[in-house]
Design a binder for these strands. Sequence first.
DNA 1: AATGAATGAGCCTTCATTCAT
DNA 2: AATGAATGAAGGCTCATTCAT
Lengths: 185, 185, 185, 185
Amino acid sequence: MPRDDTRGKIQQVALELFSEQGYERTSLREIAERLDVTKAALYYHFKTKEDILTALFQEWIEPVDKVVEWARDAPPNLATRQEILRRYAAALARAGPLFRLFEANKADVRDLAAGTAFRDTMSRVLALLTQDDASLSDHLRCVGALRTLHAAAIGLEGVAATAEQQRTAALDVALDLLASAHVPD
Amino acid sequence: MPRDDTRGKIQQVALELFSEQGYERTSLREIAERLDVTKAALYYHFKTKEDILTALFQEWIEPVDKVVEWARDAPPNLATRQEILRRYAAALARAGPLFRLFEANKADVRDLAAGTAFRDTMSRVLALLTQDDASLSDHLRCVGALRTLHAAAIGLEGVAATAEQQRTAALDVALDLLASAHVPD
Amino acid sequence: MPRDDTRGKIQQVALELFSEQGYERTSLREIAERLDVTKAALYYHFKTKEDILTALFQEWIEPVDKVVEWARDAPPNLATRQEILRRYAAALARAGPLFRLFEANKADVRDLAAGTAFRDTMSRVLALLTQDDASLSDHLRCVGALRTLHAAAIGLEGVAATAEQQRTAALDVALDLLASAHVPD
Amino acid sequence: MPRDDTRGKIQQVALELFSEQGYERTSLREIAERLDVTKAALYYHFKTKEDILTALFQEWIEPVDKVVEWARDAPPNLATRQEILRRYAAALARAGPLFRLFEANKADVRDLAAGTAFRDTMSRVLALLTQDDASLSDHLRCVGALRTLHAAAIGLEGVAATAEQQRTAALDVALDLLASAHVPD
DNA sequence: AATGAATGAGCCTTCATTCAT
DNA sequence: AATGAATGAAGGCTCATTCAT
């Protein structure tokens, strides 16, 4: 058990700064200064700047991948899909800042391995949600269901409601959308 | 009418590169090289890098602002709101790349005047769409309606459908969401 | 005609410093400081540090390449080879510091394009000097002829003789070696 | 007798890497990684990076110094000088890589104690080889004799001959050069 | 005999911007 | 309408070295 977990602190501060200012706009100098260590110390713990981002993203990818794994063994019906939505919402609730980070920095992250991994995971969730023969509109409803969850995870602006309330309402709307997208097999 | 419209060409190339690589990651050198002029030439036409972005964003903001203006003088009922959605969708159709640019570069753009203007315009559209006493869920449905339009404007991945088809389907879904969000006055 | 020829001055100072300290050990900061410009100014004139070296090496490669070109059209006999030695010695006389630079920095330069070009040129001279069926000893004598010229170009240590005198003596020894390496066709 | 002789392994790996990449361009990190130990471990065995080089060079300096010592007590005539050449060639044969290392890294090594020691030893050999009243040309012939031996120790490029054959031929040429440089006392 | 963690200095390079011409 | 030359600031990264354990 590391006594002061510098590596963890780096991730934490990086998440803060990347979120406030964006990935590209945040320099390793800033992270180091905020932690009162030298830049070189960061390089002892992470091989590159991108590696810090990768480590951060893992914390979103892993829980979501677990949802995906669970879903793979379940029958592809409405009930399963509703449960996917619920579990995905729960995963999002815990990793909201990471999701916001990804969303706000799409351009920066597009060509990084970390970004590709993130997108892939998200695609897999969407694939599990949609029926293969879905109409374009129904596909869009599933996309909409996910995006509604995302909107709440990121947090609505100008709305007087707790994060908790937003997530609950978003899940309602998402389930609605899923239901109207779904034709009984 | 300028014979070669360098200013316009700069905007065009900037849009291409900002879209491909992101705003921060695109340097003025690259823009200049692609146009076969010097960096200094860019400064003859635009005071700063941000100014290029501002000019670009105007091409989205202006049409949307026209929608907003029109809506302000119309009665705040469902029919009006449906028309807002239709007009907004039409505006988005023409300015898709700009919207994508904004979406992909939120972090870079957040603190720029250009970004604030963009967000403000979008907020105004949302405000016109929602009833003042809407429940959180209904608010989310309106947000969802807008986001669905956005999703189509940006283009869905892994979907065999033309941009035109995506936009039509998205408008359908959006109108649905609006309807279910709407309680008759 | 450029008034102050910054590019030329950069080359000149770079040659000085690379010679004193070695290529790797000389930083662009040092070059810039000695010229009282910023590092960025160097990058206006040369794309990379290696580019400075490449430009420098050209000044040795070009004259020597001219010798090689001349020799290609001449009959491959002893008289021609003696003339090659004389012309090569003359080229070396003017570009002594560059040759010393190459010699002293072989390891640094080995994997750079500049280094390869340098070596290739030198190989071509050697090839012109040797008879195809030469014995190993005679091959070594030709190598020795070249190296003797090089030794004088670099300058002997602990010897009371002008550079001019060293070059003359070296040419004598080199011609001797060539003669004893040469069997009449 | 140490069981695993880490110190020796460090020298061996350092010689490999210094030879492949050059002294400056080889980092202690690389050496440590190749040995699967930490950088700090290197510092247990050597006080500095230069110390590794010094230890390496000793393996060339010592045998050559023995030749020098032997020569000091011998009469300064041609026979002795021929024997110097033979013994020096033998020493070179065993320490070829070290000599190559020195040659390829002259600039890096110039200001290090290790480099100075190396050069001094080489100068002493040359001094023993030359007659005090030698002409400049004859001096150059002695230099050439040594350099011919060096050329073979380093290995000729593009020559189909074993190292052994090269060394034998080189010794022949060197003895020739010495003979023609030598005036009977 | 060696590691884990860190430092201070420095490196090459790039950027947005300026300004005299 | 544009260029050539340059700047100041910063960026990501690497290195030799140290030291408590």
